[in-house]
Design a binder for these strands. Sequence first.
DNA 1: TCTGGGGTCCTAGGACCC
DNA 2: TCTGGGGTCCTAGGACCC
Length: 420
Amino acid sequence: MLALVDCNNFYVSCERVFNPSLDGKPVVVLSNNDGCVIARSDEAKALGIEMGTPAFMRETFFNNNYVHVYSSNYVLYGSLSNRVIRILSTFTPAIELYSIDEAFLDFTGSSSFNLENAGGDIRMAIKENLGIPVTVGFAPTKTLAKMANRFAKKTKKTLGVHVLDTQEKINEILNFIGVGDIWGVGPQYAKLLVKNGFKKAIDFVNAPEEWIRKNMSVMGQRTLNELKGIACIELEEVTAAKKSICVARGFGKLLSEKGDLQEALANYVGMVAGKLRNEKLCCKIINVFIQTNTHRREDQQYFRSINIQLPVATNSSFELIRYANEALDVIFRAGYSYAKCGCIANDLIPETTVQYSMYDTANRHRDNVVMKTVDTVNGRFGKDLVRFALQGYGKKWKLRQLKLSPCYTTRIEDVLTIKN
DNA sequence: TCTGGGGTCCTAGGACCC
DNA sequence: TCTGGGGTCCTAGGACCC
């Protein structure tokens, strides 16, 4: 049996841990740049606030309904996520970290104990130690465990735990859940399925396999098997090596000066390089892209990206910033209002297996020492004290984060003070 | 009349996930 | 004025090879 443990409204719950006055009130958390709603409390959902709603369109509504609005604080959420995982690890060592707020746990072989009780224990441990509410779904396959979890959240009767241990219980859910709520079926496939008469998950399960294979590729077929109880998606206890690392951001406002884009890009590339060093990886290819605001139909649109093949794989900030800047020279066109740019590192290899070149002109040993020192200094002060020239101090591109909560668990100045 | 077959690699685009 | 970011996988089509 597999369990899927999923934190309820995770980002909102994190905000509530350090601000209990938010309990029972409508709370939303916004995406980067305070763009759209990416997490909602139950009360916010009840008000009809949809996932992905642009915040600026609902500002009056938020004010009129006393909705508490927060910018996303990924440092805080990441830190609490680690603590959730630590608690989950005490229940079984067989665990896959699926996302910041979800984990699959394998209870195969422990069928002797009561799963309902085990689910209740998990919920209580995380609630009491961290103050975060979670929901647990048990089932023989990942896709069914997802479904059990979703069912537990939707019905409320289940007290946050649902176990799919008989075909009758599985059928009950398949009859209840719409195709769009199946894990692996997104909006496009949901539309296609409904158009062809498959409305509920049960219709999907009974659909002809050839039709699924033809219209939804092997992924659809896999989902079909998973729903029939045939496990096709393995538990990945070891986090797979990353295949790409990306940093891309919309700017706080539109930019048309090349210098401003250079500065933004240099900062994002610096972040990519930092992530690479963190994971002890180097990249052989970087992709740089710039784009205008696609929502503004009235504006001239421009999108362009370019791949740069590096002579020697690297994770050095100055080297990558230099290449990215050359890439920008190629793709930049004057006369557009740019809204976003980004850098993706591809073809990642471990630091230790970099193939050097006879014709290499860079002093890699020296560069590595410099980067290590920069990381140490910046790490100690918790911010980018040491910066590269192109990264500048203009910050015209900077994110809007007007409603950011403190980093309660990771920054000493932000630790809560208890009054006496 | 008849104009090969089998393979690899790369890229762009589309789907999905949280 | 303001519309997220970071990932994965699959497929089709084109270029190229012998």
